[in-house]
């Protein structure tokens, strides 16, 4: 199955849900009146888009209807599609390999950082990029072993130390090693941390400082990608804000989009943070990672015109 199809497939549940909802309310109300708009808002809230985005989308439809009086289904859908695409900015992860590129995978516990690190490593290794993984999650039991297994699968070397060591020292080792071996892409897997724990957030900042310092002589480009679980509710917005305050994020990865979650949180976070969506995680397999396709995502959120 192509990645595009996988993406579509992963979101098929969402699409079915929203389409049914849309058609149901359209049938119930016949015309797009206030009650219809309220129901529409609830559909978006149910998809975890959050109140702010949901209200914004519906307001826009309301304004448009008021302005041009057009209330047909196609027109309403096209407004929604346009507004959603305006919110969702995507960016392909295409580093310039003229110097060392360092990517930190950050996020709260259990979002899929290790798995995603393994998948990205595999993608780039396959393309012939000299890739390296670093196991900077020295807290969770067996996180290092887990990343090593991904390293084997992707045929990518893994820099690691033992459980309980200072993660910043792993970053240091990895930076030295990456420079010595002329690595093009270094992916650093970090421990899951809740954003409301200041000590854990400063631990992450320290890792970041070490990477910046050690990367200076190699003109290393450092990026931070926040890994968000598609099943997460409105707390994802808080997560994004907190992580961004700590290490300044460069993009978002939404994982577990293959499940039943609708992933509306992508809209909520993208709207609040103006951060680009980079990847979509679509399963446990090594190639279950696709570039985040906003058109497809929106298409899956909305019924066909």
């Amino acid at each position: 199955m192509s990645l595009l199809n996988k993406f579509r497939d992963g979101l098929s549940k969402t699409r079915q849900f929203v389409t049914e909802g849309f058609n149901r309310v359209a049938a119930n109300f016949g015309i797009f009146d206030e009650d219809f708009l309220d129901e529409l808002e609830m559909i978006f809230i149910q998809a975890d888009c959050g109140i702010e985005v949901s209200t914004k989308l519906v307001e826009s439809v309301r304004d448009n209807i008021r302005e041009d009086g057009k209330v047909d289904r196609e027109h309403v859908l096209s407004i929604l599609r346009r507004d959603m695409l305006n919110i969702l900015k995507t960016k392909a992860f295409t580093p310039d390999f003229s110097s060392l590129n360092v990517v930190f995978m950050v996020g709260v516990n259990g979002t899929g950082k290790t798995t995603t690190a393994g998948k990205i490593a595999y993608q780039f290794q396959k393309q012939g990029t000299k890739t390296m993984l670093a196991a900077a999650d020295t807290f969770r039991a067996a996180a290092i072993d887990q990343l090593k297994i991904w390293g084997e699968r992707a045929a990518v070397p893994v820099i690691s130390n033992t459980l309980g060591t200072d993660p910043a020292s792993v970053v240091y080792d990895a930076m030295q090693s990456a420079k010595a071996r002329a690595v093009e892409l270094l992916i650093i897997d970090t421990a899951g941390r809740l954003h409301n724990k200041p000590n854990l957030m400063s631990e992450m900042e320290k890792m970041h400082r070490v990477a910046a310092r050690e990367g200076r002589d190699a003109d290393a480009v450092i990026q931070n990608l926040l890994v968000l679980d598609a099943t997460t509710g409105q707390n994802a917005v808080v997560q994004a804000r907190s992580f961004n305050e700590s290490v300044s994020l460069d993009g978002l990865i939404i994982t577990k989009l293959d499940g039943s979650a609708k992933g509306g949180i992508a809209l909520a976070v993208a709207d609040e943070m103006s951060l680009p969506l980079i990847y979509a995680g679509l399963g446990e397999g090594i190639d279950d990672l696709a570039n985040f396709d906003a058109e497809l995502f929106v298409e899956s959120l909305l019924p066909e015109a």
Partner: peptide, 15 residues
């Protein structure tokens, strides 16, 4: 159940 889970929680539990 993750305390951070969104609207999908109910469907997950029911299924």
């Amino acid at each position: 159940v993750d305390a951070m889970i969104g609207q999908e929680a109910v469907n997950v539990a029911l299924e």
